[in-house]
Computed example of a mutant assay.
Amino acid sequence: MSIQDRREREKEQRRNDILKAAEKLFLSREYDNVSMNDIAREVELSKATIYLYFENKEELFFAIVLQGTEILNSMIRNAVKKAKTGIDKVSKFRMAYHEFNRDYADYIRIYNYFQSRRFELAYNTPDTSRERSKSLSGGEKSSGTSEYLKKIHGLRGERFSIMCNSVQEGIGDGTIRPDVNPAEAAVLLSSISKSMSDIPPDHEKLLEKQGIDREKFVLDVEDLIRHMIMSYHP
């Protein structure tokens, strides 16, 4: 192995160590309760070294959100691939989302925070981006230029496309009503999935009094959605 290759490997390992330390802290604390000093102590590196790999705390947070998003999209792709009809693909998509909610609750928590108004997440046009960069003091880079952010948005767009295509396929194979608008259905189902990842405690208690736990509630909602969009004359 050449010296250059060894240095590249060491650099990649250090970056992964920083990500691992940041992930541990972001998944166990609120965003504002994690500092770059905390991450530096956790990974046992100087803060200056961390800045060689990540511009700021926001970038590190986006990198962790991206890791969770990649897991979610992988689960959805694998699940949808196993379904044969459009309506079954819609169901597989939603159940994969539920399994992610259940198995990766901490990632869901930070993703919901990521989607809050705490960050500027919208894509900018090139002209807008240039104008925005002029207005930023001290050379600070807009979060809209973050490579991590762009990848997260790309994966979000992929999920939307998978759902739209599944609905469209269902309309084509006769398992979903022809009057269902794929984009409208995708937005609605995405909103439902998001809200079900954060059911208020009083609502959970209300369901428990009816003998309905979270798993049963998810299945009941899935059955309801299926009947909302299914074709009665396949």
Rank of each mutant, 00 (worst) to 15 (best):
K205F: 12
H98E: 08
E55W: 00
R29V: 02
Q115P: 00
P178L: 03
I192G: 02
I171V: 14
I110A: 01
I162D: 03
E23K: 14
L27Y: 04
I192S: 01
P126Y: 11
Q168R: 08
L45I: 15
L207Y: 08
L72K: 03
I225V: 14
G211F: 04
F160W: 04
I176V: 10
S195H: 06
D5Q: 07
D223G: 07
I76D: 12
E44D: 15
R41M: 02
S35D: 09
R132M: 12
P234N: 07
S143R: 02
P200R: 08
D103H: 12
I225E: 06
I71S: 02
E23Y: 02
T69A: 11
A185C: 14
K20V: 00
R9E: 13
L52H: 15
I176W: 05
G138S: 10
E23A: 11
G86M: 03
L206Y: 14
Y111C: 04
K151N: 06
A79R: 09
G172E: 08
D173L: 06
V80P: 06
I110Y: 01
K11V: 09
S137A: 12
K151D: 04
E59P: 00
F160L: 12
C164F: 01
E222N: 15
L149A: 06
F114L: 03
M95T: 10
R109P: 06
Q115R: 15
F62I: 03
D103L: 15
P201H: 02
E215R: 10
H227E: 13
C164V: 03
I64M: 09
S137E: 08
K89A: 02
R94F: 12
V43H: 00
D32K: 15
L27F: 05
Y51I: 00
M228A: 15
D5C: 03
S231I: 10
V187Y: 04
R118Q: 15
K47L: 10
Q4L: 09
E12P: 01
K84L: 08
P126Q: 07
I171T: 09
L224W: 12
N56K: 01
R29L: 05
L27P: 06
R41N: 10
R159G: 14
L72M: 05
K216A: 12
V34F: 07
L206T: 11
Y31E: 01
L206V: 04
I192C: 01
